[in-house]
Design a protein around this nucleic acid. Structure first.
Lengths: 144, 144
DNA sequence: GACTTACTCTACCTACTAGATAGAGTTTAG
DNA sequence: CTAAACTCTATCTAGTAGGTAGAGTAAGTC
């Protein structure tokens, strides 16, 4: 299961991708549109900003905008920022490799092979899916 | 990431699959061979027993044995028992479906599609891999 | 240049879970 | 009847998820 935080992050980016060109979007607007606790969303957006996915402006007429085109932000990179490694075992992570403490050796680990295939399959989907893909989902009509 | 507990469970089953035909294997033997805390392993095996994967005998000459052939125990079913749902979102779980609280509707959820593909890809691997697959991994030689 | 709006940052809180440990109880073989 | 071995319930500790609070800072606007 991915975390609630990761879901919020992806949905927030999806909301930004729908924003009219270049117009910054308020945290509070994203929060209400996407049903995300505002103060929690602040943290998430800040995190995404620190990782170069979005850009912010303070003060009046401030808000957030995407820093990269939506089709260049993959689900995989967002999940890595928010939830950490994609791999199901630490010894299979590309970005945060760690030896399994209790494992004698990776060559003789009986379960590593299977999970390597899981990791590969998962990455295949996550890094070929982008925020742009969320734009094709019809949104419920809401009075403006 | 899968839990440590799930790793232990899979490795314990792998150990049982290597046991000489029908011979029950002691918890303590599995624990020492696989480097698993014994008391923790007890709980895990008990859990697997309650789910019909293994069989136990108490008393002298007791121990654990597989209840099904190794090639009929999939990684997926073990993970479900120990870690719960395979799906990355509650609304995509086959065995523990739950609506996402913060989601307006599943039809308009912008991220569900992508994770449905992740779930499918993951299941494909996990339910086609069995404990029998672990038998092909060479084990380090250890003096008996 | 004060006011207001809106992002920024740090701290904190509560409930839950992972990962384990402890120990009394029960079954079986011999 | 006793020793071996599984069974069950309780408990513990550290860490994390998910969220809240509030003071601080920057960017307009009148």
């Amino acid at each position: 299961m991915i975390s609630q935080k990761a879901k919020y992050a992806l949905r927030a980016l999806a909301a930004l991708a729908r924003a009219r060109d270049g117009e910054p979007m308020l945290i509070s607007e994203i929060a209400s549109r996407q049903n995300i606790p505002k103060k929690f969303l602040e943290q998430i957006l800040l995190d995404l900003k620190h990782h170069g996915l979005v850009l912010s402006r303070r003060g009046k007429a401030g808000g957030y905008t995407l820093l990269k085109p939506a089709d260049q932000i993959t689900f995989g990179e967002v999940l890595r920022i928010i939830d950490g490694p994609i791999a199901p075992l630490p010894c299979l992570s590309q970005t945060a490799y760690r030896r399994c403490e209790d494992c004698d050796s990776e060559a003789t680990c009986e379960i590593r092979h299977v999970f390597a295939r899981v990791a590969e399959a998962t990455r295949q989907v996550l890094f070929s899916s982008t925020i742009a893909d969320t734009l094709s989902i019809p949104q419920s009509i809401e009075s403006d």
